[in-house]
Amino acid sequence: MSFETIISILQNNWPMFLRGAYITLAIAVISTIIGAFIGFFIGIMHTIPTAKRSVKSIILKVFNFILSVYVEVFRGTPMMVQAMVVFYVLYAYGIELDRFIAALVVVGLNTGAYMAEIVRGGIVSIDKGQYEAAQAIGMNHFQTMVFVVLPQVARNILPATGNQLVMNIKDTSVLSVISVTELFFQTKSIAGANFKYAESFAIACLIYLLMTFIATRLLRLMEKKLDGPDSYKVENTTAVVK
């Protein structure tokens, strides 16, 4: 394994690497967003207050049961197997999903299952006083969630969501089993053509590392931005209170 070989592989194959990295990043980012929405949806469904034994509570119970099954199935099976099942089961029924779309479905649903737990934990961790204060000024459950609770949950679970994004960037590599042209798949093709496995995968390794590193930094920045400045301006005076 030499440095010159790595340079020459890069020179000959950079568009393929770039395309692979692009697909990897696109799947990871989009499916993390999909997953976050699913997670919030399930988290909210679990907090809807109902009177005991009303029709609404029975419908909600059935619905929440289905959601629990979804979470258990997707958390309890490997994503590689999920990819095979989703793609080939649908294929058997004559539906040929675009591989990219199939990838989004699998990673998105997988992320959603994990995010559901993260969001639930986030909602549970919000102080009871926040709900009471919102109720006391006349907010209903929906308003309390949208204007008071969920903004705080979103901020609190941002680190965990970032973690999920980093995991997704790496775990998209298993999608090569359904021939999604992400970074791992592209690298395998390149290595298969030039027989320089060590060098090719060393490059892939570096690209993965670069992507996860940048993603982590960007999320840190976002957290800081959401928290706002540490100091605040006192109106009508020149003094700045720390």
Binding site: D127, G129, Q130, Q135, A136, I137, G138, F147, V148
Partner: peptide
């Protein structure tokens, strides 16, 4: 509830 103003021991400002 909008006709009643409530002040809590623990303030409970929206964070």
């Amino acid at each position: 509830r909008t006709h009643l103003g409530m002040v809590f021991q623990q303030f409970n400002l929206f964070n």
